[in-house]
């Protein structure tokens, strides 16, 4: 009885007794969710356009954040030293990092994707694990592996509404994410390259046959994913410092994808928010029952249970198997 009470009654009583705290937990979860969404978004872009399950998306965000911090502090690559004379202003550093991400996309197409074109999906997937290792190693060697603070001038601080403490940073994060999603929507629907991307996503062979250059498309989509990773890296880095754990946290984007479906942009967003809120609420209200830290696995188990009932995700297309 006592156990049933602890599991099914007490947490809800808590929520209603201290609604302000509950709202704060929700907000915290939403913020984490936005981060997950951002990583998942880059992932969906690549999966949609090339069918590659890009395991390196999280490390891509880490790499972008490392590069940004390095440029802002004037770090000389591979030397562990920095010269303040080389330090770039924020706006220039962000643009330069964007350039680096595009260059990286080009390199990835050249070195990783092109030699592997037409390989089985599992092989492509594993090569992106290799890519994650390379990026991690190179990023650490270039910019150093210590934890770095990142401040791009997003306002911090907090204010209170009806007894609920709201972080200004979180509002900014949500705002920036919303702007980016809107931008991507326009990009996909209205621009020529966006249409080409959708065509490639539907059918590689057919897209090739009507003269859409696959090579360019891949560079384009990896560039966009790289830029999305940059935004994710900035948000996450500003919040909790740039460090390796960022790429591990980014693994959480995977259950998000399962929830949202591998090919759906709205799915990535909503999935991210559900996972973010779900795991925070579970941690705060049910975590103490089992010694805490259930955030480590809650997202994955939630995704797993979800899969049992809806294998194609919330917004994924239903798969008709043919033979």
């Amino acid at each position: 009885m006592e156990m049933l009470n602890a599991v099914f009654v007490a947490p809800f009583v808590d929520m209603f007794t201290y609604p302000a705290f509950f709202v704060e937990v929700l907000l915290g979860g939403l913020t984490a969710g936005v981060m997950y969404s951002l990583v998942a978004l880059g992932f969906v872009l690549i999966f949609k356009a090339s069918g590659v399950f890009n395991f390196a998306q999280g490390v891509l965000a880490l790499f972008a954040a490392l590069t940004l911090v390095g440029l802002m502090t004037g770090t000389i690559p591979f030397s562990q030293n920095s010269m303040s004379a080389l330090a770039l202003p924020i706006w220039l550093a962000v643009i330069a990092t964007g350039g680096v991400m595009v260059g990286l996309a080009y390199a990835i197409e050249r070195v990783v994707l092109r030699p592997l074109v037409n390989q089985e999906e599992i092989i492509m997937f594993m090569s992106t694990i290799g890519l994650a290792f390379v990026l991690e190693g190179v990023g650490d060697m270039m910019w150093g592996s210590d934890v770095k603070a990142l401040d791009v001038g997003i306002p911090s601080g907090s204010f209170e509404v009806n007894g609920v403490l709201v972080q200004v940073f979180d509002l900014w994060a949500a705002g920036i994410a919303a702007v980016m999603v809107a931008f991507l929507a326009v990009f996909f629907q209205k621009t020529k390259i966006g249409r080409a991307l959708r065509a490639v996503a539907d059918d590689h062979q057919a897209a090739l046959s009507v003269g859409i250059p696959l090579k360019t498309i891949w560079v384009a989509v990896w560039s966009v994913a790289g830029l999305v990773a940059l935004v994710a890296g900035i948000m996450w880095g500003s919040k909790s410092g740039v460090q390796f754990s960022l790429s591990l946290i980014a693994l959480k984007a995977l259950p998000v994808l399962i929830l949202g479906g591998f090919t759906s942009i709205p799915g990535a967003i909503i999935g991210g928010l559900i996972i973010g809120v779900g795991e925070k609420v579970a941690e705060v209200y049910w975590g103490p029952l089992v010694n805490g830290a259930i955030e480590n696995w809650f997202a994955y188990v939630l995704a797993l249970l979800f899969l049992m009932f809806r294998p194609q995700g919330l917004f994924g297309e239903k798969i008709i198997e043919r033979i």
């Binding site: 090569s127 694990i129 290799g130 290792f133 991690e136």
Partner: peptide
């Protein structure tokens, strides 16, 4: 080491 590891994986797969 990590870098070489990753690069080798990609190389082998290719």
């Amino acid at each position: 080491e990590i870098t070489i590891f990753g690069a080798l994986i990609i190389f082998f797969l290719a």
